[in-house]
Simulated assay, not measured.
Amino acid sequence: MPYKEKEIEKLYYPIGEVAEMFEVNTSMIRFYEKEFEILQPKKNAKGNRLFRPEDISNLKIIFNLIKDKGFTIQGAKEFMKKNKNEVVEQQKVIESLEKLKSFMLELKEQL
């Protein structure tokens, strides 16, 4: 059985890395932090934002609602408040499908 490296997941991500993940400016991440109560990154002594994996997951939900589904910011806020459990479940499905897609693409390359 071949050795499979386990993905290393950080405990905290600086705002620059988060902005790269979502291919946006850091100002947009800061804007969403102000607009959405659910985003609560930790701040170090210097005041730098440090995002946890759950913050990244919440950002994925926000980007999905706004970019993919076409919600306004106010609409996304209301939808998340009313349907929190449904939104979280949908995000889990999306993440599992993304993992499956990357696995299939990796398998295709090996053939």
Score class of each variant (00 low, 15 high):
Glu20Asn: 15
Glu20Arg: 15
Glu20Ala: 06
Met21Ser: 08
Met21Trp: 08
Glu23Arg: 15
Glu23Val: 10
Glu23Gln: 15
Val24Gly: 10
Val24Asn: 13
Asn25Cys: 09
Thr26Lys: 15
Thr26His: 05
Thr26Leu: 09
Ser27Arg: 12
Ser27Lys: 13
Ser27Val: 10
Met28Glu: 13
Met28Trp: 12
Met28Phe: 08
Ile29Lys: 02
Ile29Glu: 02
Ile29Asp: 07
Phe31Gln: 14
Tyr32Arg: 06
Tyr32Trp: 15
Tyr32Ala: 00
Glu33Thr: 08
Lys34Pro: 11
Lys34Gly: 07
Glu35Pro: 13
Glu35Trp: 08
Glu35Ala: 14
Glu35His: 11
Phe36Asn: 13
Phe36Met: 08
Glu37Thr: 14
Glu37Ala: 15
Glu37Phe: 14
Glu37Cys: 14
Ile38Leu: 09
Ile38Pro: 09
Gln40Tyr: 12
Gln40Cys: 12
Gln40Asp: 09
Gln40Met: 08
Lys42Ala: 12
Lys42Met: 13
Lys42Trp: 08
Lys43Val: 08
Asn44Glu: 04
Asn44Asp: 15
Ala45Cys: 00
Ala45Asp: 13
Gly47Asn: 04
Gly47Val: 04
Arg49Met: 04
Leu50Pro: 01
Leu50Thr: 00
Leu50Ala: 01
Phe51Gln: 00
Phe51Asn: 01
Phe51Asp: 02
Arg52Val: 03
Pro53Ile: 12
Glu54Asn: 09
Asp55Val: 02
Ile56His: 06
Ile56Leu: 11
Asn58Cys: 01
Leu59Met: 07
Leu59Arg: 00
Leu59Asn: 00
Leu59Asp: 00
Leu59Phe: 04
Lys60Cys: 08
Ile61Arg: 09
Ile61Trp: 01
Ile61Asn: 03
Phe63Glu: 04
Phe63Arg: 07
Asn64Gly: 07
Ile66Ser: 05
Ile66Met: 01
Ile66Tyr: 05
Asp68Thr: 05
Lys69Gly: 03
Gly70Ser: 07
Gly70Trp: 09
Phe71Trp: 08
Phe71Pro: 03
Thr72Tyr: 04
Thr72Pro: 05
Thr72Lys: 07
Gln74Leu: 08
Gln74Asp: 12
Gly75Phe: 04
Gly75Met: 07
Ala76Tyr: 02
Ala76Thr: 03
Lys77Arg: 15
Lys77Ile: 12
Lys77Ala: 05
Glu78Ile: 12
Glu78Tyr: 03
Glu78Ser: 14
Phe79Ser: 11
Phe79Met: 05
Phe79Pro: 00
Met80Phe: 06
Met80Pro: 06
Lys81Cys: 09
Lys82Phe: 10
Lys82Tyr: 07
Asn83Trp: 04
Asn83Thr: 02
Lys84Trp: 04
Lys84Thr: 11
Lys84Tyr: 10
Lys84Val: 06
Glu86Pro: 00
Glu86Gly: 01
Val87Ser: 15
Val87Asn: 10
Val88Arg: 12
Val88Glu: 15
Glu89Leu: 09
Glu89Gly: 03
Glu89Thr: 01
Gln91Thr: 09
Gln91Arg: 09
Lys92Asn: 13
Lys92Val: 03
Val93Asp: 12
Val93Thr: 14
Val93Ala: 13
Ile94Thr: 11
Ile94His: 03
Ile94Gly: 04
